[in-house]
Computed example of a mutant assay.
Amino acid sequence: MISQKIALTPQTLKTTFAASVAGAVVVLVLQPEHTSSLPILVAYGLWATHLFFGFLLFLSGVALLQRLGWRNPWPTIVSALMLPILFGCVSLALDYGFGNPEEGEPTATTFLGLLLEEIVAVTPASFVIAGALIYLLRREAPPVEPAEPDEPTPVSLRGLIASVPLDLGNDIIRMHAQDHYVEVVTTQGRSLLSEQFGECVEKLADLDGIHCHRSHWVRLAHVVDIKKKGSAYASLLSNGDEVPISRRKYSEFKSRLHDTATST
């Protein structure tokens, strides 16, 4: 089946034309009785034109159904089934246009009867045309390369906390509550914000950080070590700062820190 999207581009038409030219040679080699009375060049032109319109009708049907949102493999199947009807109409017109109607007395006496006879006659050729074009387009389809994983989108610290100065950048190390202010420390510097500490912690919920003490939040990616200080613990950060860890948070802190280390 044709899985890629079909469009009547110059490349597709070039493939269709080449298939028609080559296919007409094959048909003439088989010496069909239908064109035996015609000059060879006229017979060749008739078969090449037949094949070209047959290919074009099939491609147009697939492209139209794909644009209408039909899922594979239905555009290919329906277009192949409809091709004998459409191709029969074109074939009958081409035969009379080239001055080569059916030899002998036709069995049908009406136009509809002639058309039905033509449809029956071209049905095998229609399926051959559809099959040949499916084969050619599948061979030309570019190999599907595995999609590369999307790179993570850099976090905008200012997008999370609007009052963060632009010159602090986005790589936050820690936050510290100081009375009615919050000290934000990044790799680019530090600043006091007129914010509520609890609200800032909530805004940074999607970052790899932890509220490790009543008034401290740290980014786990910047934790270098855990130090024991008497009966308490403190985290040593990448910028040299030490931040206390509450006893209640110590187990969670160690577990989260281990998960962060193994995932990087």
Rank of each mutant, 00 (worst) to 15 (best):
A93N: 02
E199H: 06
E105H: 05
L65K: 01
R158F: 10
L115C: 01
D206Q: 15
F55M: 15
S20Y: 07
L236E: 15
T76Y: 04
E199M: 03
E117D: 15
V78E: 02
V26Q: 09
F98K: 11
E102K: 11
L136D: 08
T15F: 15
S251L: 04
W47E: 07
L114W: 03
R158V: 11
R190P: 01
S251F: 01
P73H: 09
G61C: 09
G54M: 05
S263H: 11
H34E: 14
L57D: 01
V223A: 15
G189V: 14
G88K: 00
P101R: 00
T16P: 01
D95T: 12
P32N: 08
F98G: 02
V90E: 02
E202W: 00
Q196F: 03
V21Y: 09
A234P: 01
S191H: 09
N100Y: 00
L41Q: 07
T35C: 13
T107F: 00
R139P: 12
A234G: 11
L137F: 14
T110D: 14
H34P: 04
P143M: 05
E242K: 15
F58E: 10
G209T: 09
D225M: 02
P142H: 06
T9Q: 10
T12S: 11
I2N: 10
S3H: 10
T264E: 12
V155T: 15
S37T: 06
Y250V: 02
A121S: 07
S238R: 06
T264M: 07
P142K: 14
V182R: 10
C89E: 04
G23S: 13
P152W: 01
A108P: 13
E199W: 04
A177V: 09
E140Y: 07
G113N: 13
L65G: 03
P101E: 00
L13K: 11
R139T: 12
Q66W: 04
N170I: 07
H222T: 05
D150F: 04
T110K: 14
H213E: 01
G209Q: 10
A221H: 12
A205R: 09
T186R: 11
I129T: 05
G23A: 07
A19N: 04
V201C: 09
K227F: 02
H216Y: 08
S191W: 13
F111V: 15
D225H: 06
N170K: 06
V78C: 03
T123R: 00
R248F: 04
V201E: 00
G23D: 08
G61M: 06
S251H: 05
L64C: 13
A63T: 00
F87E: 04
E195S: 06
W47R: 09
G45F: 10
S126V: 02
P142C: 10
L193H: 10
